[in-house]
Every structure is written in C-alpha cells, then in structure tokens.
Amino acid sequence: MRKLLNTLYVTSTDAYLARDGENIVVKVDNAERFRIPVHNIEGIVTMGYMGMSPAAMHLCAENKVAVSFVSESGKFLGRVTGPVSGNVLLRRKQYRIADDPEQSLRLSKLFVAGKIANTRTILQRSLRDHSAQLDVELLDSVIAKLSIKQRQALLSKSMDELRGYEGEAAMEYFSVFNQLILHQKSSFRMEGRNRRPPLDNVNALLSFIYVLLMHEVRAALESVGLDPCVGFLHVDRPGRQSLALDMMEEFRPFIADRLVLNLINRNQINGSGFVKQPAGGIIMDENTRKEVITAWQKRKQEEILHPFLEEKVEIGLLPYVQALLMARHLRGDLDAYPVYIYK
C-alpha cells in the first residue's frame, strides 16, 4: 500500500516558492519562512500571488510532486505536473468507455448512488448522536426521500434522468444542512448550496475543502495511470477534471461535509474569520485557512475500515484506493466498480 506523504499548503498570499538543492523553500518578503525536502511531500497547494520559480517547478516535476495554484477564495486556477505516465492501454480503455453512452451511464449511476447513500448516512448519524437537538421528523422525511432518489438513480435510463435525480437529492440534503449545525448558528447558516462565489460562511468552507479534495483525487488518478480529464458523469470541457469530479462525488459527504460540520460544531473556527468581498463573495482570512488546513491534514490521518477491501486504510489514501479499484475495473479485473459507501 502506498505511504501517505504530506501535502504542503501555502496560505500566505505574499509567499514565493523557490528551490534550494533538493528542498522547496517558502519565502515571504524575500525572507525564508519554511523549507522541506521534496521527497517528503506528494503535492503542493499554494494560495500565493507571488508565484513559484521555474527551478522549483522543475524539481517538483522530476519528483512527481503536483503543484496546484488556488485563489484566496479557494478557486482552482491551474496545476503543474511532470510528464504523463501510466499504461497507455489503460487510458485507451478509459477513453473507449467514456465514448460509450451505455457504459458511461452504468458507471455514473454508481457515482451518484454512492454520493446519495453517503449523504443519507451523514443525516442518520446526526440523528443518532444529536436527536435531542434536531427536528427528527424533518430529517426522517429527508432520509426517506434520499433512499428513493438513490433507487431512482440506479434505475435511470439516461444521463439527463440521472442528473435530475442527483440534483433533487442534493437539494433535499442541503435543505436540512443547517439542522446539522449545532453551534454558532448566527455565524454559520446556509441558504442552499451556492458557489462562484460562495455567498455565506458555510458555502465558503464547503467550496474551499472541495478544492483540497479535488487536488487529492486528481493526484490519485494520475498516480495509477488514469486521465483525470476524461470522465463518465461530468461532461468533457477544456480544463475540466471530469473523472476527478466523478470520483469526488462519493467522497464529498464523508470527507468534506463532515469536516465542515466538525470545524463549526467544535468551535475550531468562528465567524470573525470570514470576510465579505465588495462583489459579495465570502473568503476566509489567513488564520482561518490555516486552521482548516490543519484539521484537513489530521482528518486524512484517521483510519477507517474499507468496506470492499476489508482492511484499515487512512482516509487520506481513500482516493488512491478508489483510483486503483477503478483502474482494475477498467482493465476487466473487477466486474464492477466498488464505489465507497460510508457506514
């Protein structure tokens, strides 16, 4: 099993990344703030405006360390990677399946059904742990509706029908997301899911963590030789990481949404760390971003029992495990792709 290495997150907008031998050096105002050997990291996510030296990019590319550039609000801007590797036969099989509407629909139904199942579990666990603080009747109603949407998704006859069920399920889930926020309700409340830009503190958190998750999923797909840009559920579009977006669906509730709720309910962050921009969007200040990233790194180190492998794996390795299983399925070693279902 692959070793879980570190991802370097650079949150200062004034940071510049440089190379010193085999080390990545973070500088602010030309003064060194941090350094790390390149072989100790597997990825870099930088929110700095100052950039990165060509020598540092070269070092990362040589060592298969992917570098993602993200805006202050968490919007993905671009990515630098080394030469494409992997089995060309696997990628060609991936492309053939992506061009086959029937096979694409079959895989897409698994992604959507897995996502809906995991959102339902989030609500069920909240009811189990905090029923005295929740509207039990309301959540029971939404859980029942999600069960129906999951079955409908698996029986979909077309991609448009499937996307319709996915949208309806997401609307139901996020309509009660405020119920799961037990503390700091005056600072953290969402009126539905919104993005580009996020218009409230909860959506700002969700969007930011989804970007971190995207970095992990894309790197995992590339590491097993799959093309993260060619997916089955999400439509191909220049610059769009369609397969990474497909695979993210099963992880969003368990990895990202739960982390958002924990950060708020455990008072690890507060409303003063969010800033409204002139255009109306919400961003986090630097200290809040650091707190979120620290919690994200700790979350990745937690262990779970993988339901298909029946082995303990770190949460940070879940994207890699699922990418391996996807590759095995596309090669014909597995009859079906075992989507990750949170228990």
Rank of each mutant, 00 (worst) to 15 (best):
S131G: 06
L134G: 00
M284R: 02
T7D: 06
S68D: 09
S12K: 10
V84Q: 13
Y320S: 08
V230A: 09
H234L: 09
K343M: 10
Y210K: 05
K185C: 09
E62Q: 13
E172V: 06
E216K: 13
V339T: 07
M247D: 07
K115C: 05
R35G: 00
N201K: 05
R2H: 14
R91F: 08
P198Y: 10
L261A: 00
Q297C: 12
R196H: 08
K145W: 11
L146C: 03
V80C: 06
I293S: 00
Y340E: 03
F111E: 00
T288L: 08
P37C: 08
L77E: 11
T288V: 05
H306F: 03
L243T: 02
I283F: 03
P198Q: 01
F174T: 05
G231Q: 01
K312N: 12
A113V: 02
L309G: 09
E216W: 10
Q277Y: 11
L325G: 02
T7E: 07
R106Y: 15
I269N: 01
Q124T: 13
H58Q: 13
R252Q: 08
S108L: 08
Q277H: 12
N270E: 06
M47S: 03
R128T: 14
S147T: 11
M284G: 02
D335C: 09
P54G: 11
A66F: 08
M52W: 04
K115E: 03
L4N: 08
L263T: 00
A295Y: 00
Y16N: 00
M171H: 15
V28D: 03
S175H: 07
R196P: 04
L334N: 06
Y337E: 00
I255E: 05
N203V: 01
Q103R: 14
S186H: 14
M248T: 10
R35S: 10
L205M: 11
S242I: 07
D227N: 05
K300S: 07
I269C: 07
G273P: 00
L233P: 01
R240I: 06
R128K: 14
Q268H: 13
H234A: 02
S68E: 11
L182D: 02
S53E: 06
D227K: 04
N30T: 13
